[in-house]
């Protein structure tokens, strides 16, 4: 538990951090998401389960965070790489690592993202000039050079942190576990609470007021069922230890089943909408033919109710 990460691990993680931003910008395969970062980093560091837990927690934290109109977003992927790598190499608790390393790193990386986006203007200006010179292959080349600011904006900070941050983190872990137990508990609580932020951000982007009934339904149904299932599970497990004749498997509540109920509501909504639409189209075409007014023909829109 010396907090150092072997060089080939540093190298692989750096390469992955460079690949992920390329993926995120282009094919969007999901490999750039925090859960994948957790899985891959966990595999490289030799503890997949811990990686999945950290990646999953950070995924939930940024659930609703997207880039819209070119704004920089909190880089939960790099945060996951560092949190997972250090958590495994120093033995730091997973929830604590999420709050103590994952989130601060993720938000610091916004700066390098901005730097990358800014540096790309350099190649852009070259392209402007090359268009005048009609140098077609150079236009394409300079466009592709744009990949370097992007991948370096992730690769350099991740490499430096992994290579030189180990001792600092392992000292921090020691202090947190002994003198600052309250802080380490607090950070673990924060880690458990962070998904709440992700859900709240997501709700900000969704038309909550319009679909409030379904928010209540989803929450209450799941709250009741999950409590029921958890209680039955603990009851069953206890019974099994008491009586040998008592056997059976007890699962936690099936999220797929809960989601299917929601899908049913959604299908109904879709059907209602398309029917309403057909009706308005019918009415407006009837109006058009009877009145022969060309001015009214644009009034077919009914869906102005975006929240």
């Amino acid at each position: 538990m010396h907090g150092n990460i072997i060089f080939w691990q540093v190298l692989l993680l750096t390469l992955y951090s460079m690949y992920q931003i390329w993926d995120e910008l282009t094919i969007v395969s999901s490999l750039s998401q925090p859960v994948w970062a957790g899985l891959i980093t966990g595999a490289i560091m030799g503890d997949v389960t811990k990686g999945l837990i950290i990646g999953g927690s950070l995924q939930l934290t940024v659930l609703g965070v997207g880039t819209f109109g070119g704004s920089s977003k909190i880089d939960a992927n790099s945060g996951t790489i560092l949190a997972t790598a250090f958590s495994i190499s120093t033995g730091m608790n997973a929830s604590t690592a999420v709050a103590a390393i994952g989130v601060p790193v993720a938000s610091l990386m916004i700066e390098t993202d901005i730097l990358g986006r800014f540096t790309n203007t350099f190649f852009q200006h070259r392209i402007d000039r090359l268009i005048d010179e009609e140098n077609y292959s150079a236009i394409e080349r300079n466009y592709l050079y744009g990949v370097f600011p992007w991948i370096l904006s992730r690769g350099i900070p991740v490499f430096l942190a992994l290579q030189f941050g180990g001792n600092f983190v392992s000292t921090a872990v020691k202090v947190l576990d002994t003198h600052l137990k309250w802080l380490s508990n607090g950070l673990a609580t924060a880690g458990a609470l962070l998904p709440a932020v992700g859900f709240a951000i997501l709700l900000r982007y969704l038309p909550v007021k319009k679909h409030i009934a379904y928010l209540i339904l989803g929450f209450t149904l799941t709250a009741l069922f999950s409590t029921l299932y958890t209680n039955v599970q603990s009851l069953g497990t206890t019974m099994a230890t008491v009586s040998k004749g008592f056997a059976g498997s007890f699962n936690s509540v099936s999220m797929v089943a809960i989601a299917l109920i929601g899908l049913g509501f959604a299908i109904n909504e879709y059907k209602r909408n398309t029917e309403k639409q057909k009706l308005t189209e019918l009415v407006s075409s009837y109006k058009d033919s009877s009145q022969e007014k060309s001015n009214d023909s644009e009034d077919g829109e009914i869906y102005g109710d975006e929240d």
Binding site: F199, L215, G218, F219
Partner: peptide
């Protein structure tokens, strides 16, 4: 609609 419903379930 499905999104809002699922978020409700996830919160729980």
């Amino acid at each position: 609609l499905l999104g809002v419903y699922v978020v409700g379930a996830l919160v729980a």
